[in-house]
Amino acid sequence: MADGAGVGSALWLAAAVATAAAATYAWRGLGVLLAGRIRVDGAAFAWIGYVAYGLLAGLIARMILLPAGPLATTALGVRLAATGVALAVFFAAGRHLVAGVVAGVVAFTGLVALGVG
């Protein structure tokens, strides 16, 4: 982990990347194995889709409210304000993804550069 410096740390990070790659390819490989043999519009697939969706929502909220790494040096108010700007522009522009992302990132960068954060 982060406290193990040098080769051990690099090895651990490489193991994390390899683990994530294997966990991702597992779905693609299993998909090939099951292709044409199962129905994908059943309740089990709907449920696992919602689990992925809820997990991502939780990850996003945690990254904004309780960030790890350098975002932790910024003020919570700035992160929340920029998130609010992103959502407001997203809906005002008719659920426009790019407009929301650009507005949120620009608002965040601007507030941090002005020293609000």
């Binding site: 683990t19 991702t24 099951l34 044409g36 994908v40």
Partner: peptide
């Protein structure tokens, strides 16, 4: 993110797998 918070490899495997579940019906 999990690397950043010092999580275990097992936790990384499970979280990544759950986040990628959409790939199965897409591949099928």
């Amino acid at each position: 993110e999990l690397v950043g918070t010092g999580a275990s490899l097992a936790a990384i495997a499970v979280a990544v797998a759950l986040s990628g579940s959409r790939l199965l019906p897409m591949t099928v």
